[in-house]
Amino acid sequence: MTKYDKVFNSQKTLTESLTPEEAVAAIAVVTAIADASVEEIDPEGLAGILWQFEVFEEYSEDELVEIVDKLIDIAESQGLSPLFNTANESLTEEVVLDGFAAGVVTLLDEEQFTIPKSKEPFLKKLQEALELEDEEADEITKEIIAAFQAGENAEYLDEEEGILTEVEYVEDVYESPLGNFTVPIPVDAEQGGRIQTQEGVVGFSDDFGTLLRIDYYPIPPEQLEELESEGQEEYLKTILVDKYVPQAILANLPDSQIKYGEYLEDIFAGAYYALVDMPKGSTMSQQENNGSSTRLDAYRGLLTFINGEFLYIVSSQRSFLNGETPNAIAEEAEYIKDNILSFVETMEFS
């Protein structure tokens, strides 16, 4: 007798039926409890994971928490095996892969991005019970692991100095805490517009792929000497290409590459612009059929310049849906540069 016989070696079912969506959630609940006690399960945490699945797009997070709570109560009162058997019977062909994905996500070690060795026997039994081929199961597992890795690595807005904090906004204009600039807010709250800030950084984003970010730093005296000795073009290029991009992008997305660079002598008495190719580096994700999500490829344009006593780096992204082919680098670079310059024109400096 194995430790998972209580789940897979019984023919008992529930007295009540489950919807296909409840069946997917039930597999996550059974998986979570199989190696733990009911008391250890976090309904809100489990619901938060499941809420990312496309199959639950019609549900609010609160509704999903209620479903998870109900399923946990059923598992406690009627047992794991009846809950699993009823879930298995209730999975339609359209969501059976979602059911397996729910098990994978529940077992995943999110720090190591692996299925722990001790959990692999359960996952194998789940695969067999759902009658999935090895190739199907492996593909789903790899996609989910890749999605979690991309989600961890691609959030380039999280830097060593700290995580950007999302703030609510009611005004139409954002004012820097240091008083060095103001800018009309370029995103709409009704379209998922968000403002994220930390010291020296503000980012604007929305659900449609908009990303506009301003990094700003008071220039220390020692750098003013460096600026004078190197000249503005070389100084700005060094700051952007040799320092900012490696620290803010390449450290998290090592496959990224600078594809284009240009000095703009007529912008703020000199500005340096670069375009970075960021595979799986967009802040946008594309939902897969099994409920997992994959970060999109993106180009990130960055413009650095000096105004007053501050150095600025203003950036924007262009994301590409799976299968979408970018234009020539020069054309993409020009397009994103124009977007950044249009945004910079809305900034008022003090």
Results as ranks from 00 to 15, higher is better:
Val167Glu: 02
Val173Met: 06
Asp172Ile: 01
Asp172Gly: 04
Gln198Arg: 14
Glu225Phe: 12
Tyr216Leu: 09
Ile185Met: 07
Pro246Gly: 03
Tyr216Asp: 01
Pro177Tyr: 03
Glu226His: 05
Val173Ser: 07
Gln232Thr: 08
Arg213Lys: 12
Leu236Thr: 01
Ile195Arg: 11
Glu228Phe: 05
Val183His: 02
Gln198Glu: 12
Pro184Ser: 09
Ala189Gln: 15
Val241Gly: 01
Lys237Gly: 00
Gln196Gly: 11
Gln196His: 15
Asp206Lys: 11
Phe208Gln: 08
Glu228Val: 02
Ser205His: 00
Ala251Leu: 15
Glu226Pro: 00
Leu240Arg: 08
Gln198Asp: 09
Glu175Thr: 08
Gln232Pro: 12
Glu168His: 12
Arg213Asp: 06
Asp206Met: 12
Val170Ala: 10
Lys243Phe: 15
Val167Gly: 00
Gly193Val: 11
Asp242Ser: 13
Glu230Asn: 10
Val201Leu: 08
Ala189Pro: 13
Pro218Ala: 09
Leu211Pro: 01
Gly179Thr: 07
Gln198Met: 04
Glu171Cys: 02
Ile214Arg: 01
Thr197His: 03
Pro177Gln: 03
Tyr244Arg: 03
Leu178Gly: 08
Pro186Glu: 05
Pro218Tyr: 07
Leu227Trp: 01
Gly231Cys: 02
Thr165Gly: 06
Leu211Lys: 07
Ile239Ser: 09
